[in-house]
Every structure is written in C-alpha cells, then in structure tokens.
Simulated scan of single mutants.
Amino acid sequence: MMSNAVSNIGMVRDKNEDSFYVSGCDDPYKLYIVADGMGGHNAGEIASSLAVDAAKQFFDKYYVSLQKTDDMIEKFIREAIANSNTRVLNESQLHIDESGMGTTMTLLLIENNKFYIGHIGDSRAYLIRNNTIEQITEDHSLVTQMVKEGKLSIAEAKYHPLKNIITRAIGVDMDINIDVYIRQAVQGDIVILCTDGLSNMVTDAEILEEYTKCDIVTASNNLVECSNARGGYDNITIVAVKC
C-alpha cells in the first residue's frame, strides 16, 4: 500500500485553512483525513487542525480495543467525527475570536480489506478502479441539494455563485449528521480524498487521467499545478492511497 499527501495554499488565499492526516507505519490503524476550514468563518485553519487532531486522538485511545465488525467500525467513525465536532465547538466558545469557526471532514479507514469513509461537508472521496472514477461521497452543499430537488442541473451547479455554501459541517451545531460509506477494497484501487480547492478546478475525468497515467505522487502534484494554473482560488489538499 502506498500513500501520499500534498497541501497547497493556492494562488489567492493568504493562509492555508486545510489540514490532513496520513497514517505512519507505527500507527495501529490505516487512517487518512482531509479537512477544510470553512471560508468566511473565523479561524478556519484552527478548526480544521483541531478536528483532525481530535479524530486522531480518538483513534489512538480507543481503536486497538474496538471490535472490527462493519457495524462497530461505522459506529466508531461516527463517534470519532462527533468528538471532533465537540472539540471545535468547545474551542470556539472559549475564544471569542474563534467564534463561528467550522470545518469539513472526510476520513478514510482501511480495515478488513474494506474502505470505511466518514464524511461531513463538501470535501470529497473518490475511488478509482479499472480505469473508472466514482465520487463516493455526496457534497453537503446548497447547490447539491438544489440539484436533487430539480432546481439546478449538474452543469449549472458547478458554476453557481452559491456553490461554496455548505449545509453540514463540524463546529456549527452540537448534533451533526455524518455519512458513512463502506466499499470492498480491490488490489490496484486508488482512493483520493480532496478539498474543494481541487474539485472546483478540475473535472473527475482529469483526476482519473492523471492517476491512471502517473504514480500517485506525480498525479497529485500535477493536479495541484493544474488547479493553480486555472486560478488557484482556494487551498488545495489531496490525500491519495493506492492498494
């Protein structure tokens, strides 16, 4: 198994509000996370960093003793992300200059030869398999909701002025709605976690092309360069894992 992470400030922002985590060889789990501090809110970079750190600490404390069934892992992922939510909320209440901060989170755990993905917000998880790409996660955004309601086409949604408004996030409410997806892993699969600084600037087909013709390090770097060449309007973070 190979993994790689790249995070880039982009061409416009004055700070990087994205955070990520990639498991090392000493970890008792295979855990990968991306988080995007909410634009327009205070201290987005603090929110994303706190959320990632809280999730890792939760895994460090409880994962070894967890019963590794699908149901228990799904419950555990929900609890880990909820713990991150509590951590961000508590911090924002303690410091007035951090009030209202929030973050997305998309988390990948590999266990039992399966991908377990926890998700809230509009960062994404993609699966590349057999020269095809699938967006596993659903964006929790206003325009995605409008597409589902038939008010917008997919093409209209991509360039809609409200596309950056998200409907679910860590740090906004005490009770949060978390999606969990489970997929069987197949040798050669590539899972990509990314923030919307990538997905807003390149197409799914372009992501597929890069990862099918290049190694994951080169592909990720090429996609960052492409996003920046097209304006780099947001921070760009990619975590890629190849089985």
Rank of each mutant, 00 (worst) to 15 (best):
L127Y: 13
G232Q: 06
Q57F: 00
C194P: 06
N113S: 08
V52K: 06
K15D: 05
G232E: 10
L142D: 03
I192K: 02
E111I: 11
I165S: 06
K151P: 00
M72Y: 09
G100I: 15
T106S: 10
L109M: 09
E134K: 04
E134S: 07
R183Q: 12
E111Y: 08
E210G: 06
L108A: 15
M146N: 08
S3C: 08
A43W: 01
L50M: 14
Q93T: 10
Y116A: 07
A5S: 15
I182N: 07
S84D: 08
M1P: 01
G100T: 14
K148N: 09
I81H: 12
I33M: 05
K56H: 14
E74T: 15
V12T: 12
S49I: 00
T69W: 06
Y21T: 05
G232W: 06
I120Y: 05
A219P: 01
I133Q: 10
Y63T: 11
D189W: 04
G197V: 14
N130K: 11
Y159M: 08
M1C: 01
N16V: 07
L127P: 08
F20M: 13
Y211P: 03
M38V: 14
L193Q: 03
F115L: 07
E209V: 02
K68H: 12
V186S: 10
Q57K: 09
Y181F: 15
M2R: 04
L208C: 00
T203N: 01
V191E: 05
I117G: 02
T69G: 03
E206T: 09
D215G: 11
I96H: 14
I46K: 14
E98V: 00
I110A: 06
T137M: 01
A205D: 15
E134H: 03
G102N: 09
I178V: 14
Y63E: 14
V147A: 01
N8H: 11
E156N: 09
A169K: 14
I77H: 03
D18W: 02
Q57E: 10
V34Y: 04
Y181C: 11
I166E: 04
K61A: 12
D175K: 08
I9N: 06
D196Q: 12
L108E: 13
S84C: 14
D71I: 02
I110Y: 03
I190F: 13
G118R: 02
A155L: 13
F20E: 09
A157M: 07
E149I: 01
T237V: 01
G232C: 07
V88Q: 06
G121E: 09
V217P: 00
N90H: 11
T132F: 04
S227H: 11
A82P: 00
E98S: 00
Y181I: 13
R129M: 12
K114T: 10
M146Q: 14
N222I: 02
L107D: 06
G150N: 13
D122M: 02
T106I: 06
D215I: 04
I236D: 09
I136W: 05
I216C: 08
A229Y: 10
L94Q: 15
Q57W: 00
E225N: 14
R13P: 11
A185W: 00
I182W: 02
S199W: 07
V224Q: 09
V88R: 05
L94P: 04
N228T: 11
I176F: 04
V52F: 05
C226E: 15
I236A: 09
S49K: 08
I128F: 10
M101L: 12
E210H: 13
E206Y: 01
A169C: 15
G100P: 13
L152Y: 06
V191G: 07
